[in-house]
Design a protein around this nucleic acid. Structure first.
Length: 300
DNA sequence: CATATGTCCTGAGAGC
DNA sequence: TGCTCTCAGGACATAT
């Protein structure tokens, strides 16, 4: 599920835990197969107990909770994971709970009745493909940060052409490769290529500089706007923000999950679906023709 | 049966 | 031969 805009929304939604300290860490008991948590929860508690949260960050599609002892909790939602503070969709798929308490003085000014001096950070995951890891700062760099490409919110046309340019891979497949650029997933890859007017089947080594410019510009436009809309909650309703609200960028989708519908830009083409790398791709065969130069960055 | 927002691992093949 | 990189395919677990 969550791609960069959804993960960014999760991070912003739990930002109020900054400065709180860890009281307890526990797996929620359920009959489902447990998710991957490394090291085991007891060990995590030993390392994090009473530790203050310095800040909340994002690394590609992962949420980072950074502690004062230089450890970081890396939460990777994968397809259906959610990081929440309130109202999880159900208890059946609740996987981990971290009890937090405000440090001395932090709760001052907040009425005790609101219970704001205590918070609970939860990880909920229906499919259970998500993972949680606790890493020391140096391991975070070597095991994770180093393997990821530049964050999609910072990538430029030059970086695109340098990192992608020599490859034979199709551009849609390459955009999903987190070692090339971090944060783009299946929905936003489709939307970015539509806005850029680039055929998703184009081989990277045949994409022109002008097209890389359009792809870079579209990356920023699509992702920034999707963040403003707090991400996409698809028809299955799985994605929710930190307090169980829905995103609304799904109403802005121009191609994703719109097979057979008329293209909103040219009104001639019908959105087509094809499979690339075992994943669905949606595009407008008129606006995204390989040699087409009709595409314009002006969205509406 | 087919579909699903993501990532990791394995094995094959290419190129040096 | 061996090392590295690339790419295709499957696995992971649950639900609609």
């Amino acid at each position: 599920m969550p791609e960069l805009p959804e993960v960014e929304t999760m991070c912003r939604g739990i930002k109020s835990i900054e400065g709180y300290r860890v009281i307890n860490v526990q797996m929620t008991k359920c009959d489902l197969k447990p998710i991957s948590i490394v090291p085991p929860v007891g060990e995590i508690l030993d390392i994090l107990k009473n530790q203050r949260i310095l800040d909340v960050g994002r690394l590609g599609k992962r949420v980072l909770v950074n502690f004062e002892n230089d450890y970081s909790l890396v939460i990777e939602p994968r397809m259906t994971g959610l990081v929440m503070l309130e109202n999880p969709p159900n208890t059946k798929h609740l996987r981990l709970e971290i009890a937090l308490k405000a440090v001395e003085g932090q709760e001052r000014g907040i009425p005790e009745t609101l219970g704001e001096s205590e918070k609970k950070l939860m990880f909920w995951d229906r499919r259970g493909l998500g993972t949680i890891r606790l890493l020391a700062g140096s391991d975070l760099k070597s095991q994770l940060a180093q393997r990821l490409g530049p964050d999609a919110l910072t990538i430029t046309a030059k970086m695109y052409s340098e990192r992608f340019g020599g490859r034979k891979k199709e551009i849609k497949v390459a955009l999903l490769d987190q070692t090339l650029v971090a944060g783009i997933g299946n929905i936003y890859a489709a939307e970015i290529l539509f806005l850029a007017g680039v055929d998703p089947r184009s081989a990277c080594d045949r994409i022109t500089l002008a097209q890389w410019e359009r792809i870079a510009q579209a990356t920023q436009t699509i992702l920034q706007t999707a963040i403003e809309y707090e991400g996409s909650t698809l028809s299955d309703g799985t994605y929710r923000n930190a307090i169980n609200g829905e995103g609304s960028y799904q109403h802005c989708h121009r191609v994703y999950d719109r097979e057979g519908m008329a293209c909103t830009r040219c009104e001639l083409g019908r959105i087509q679906r094809l499979v690339q790398g075992q994943r669905s791709t949606f595009f407008c065969p008129v606006c995204q023709r390989k040699r087409g130069r009709h595409a314009s960055l002006k969205a509406e």
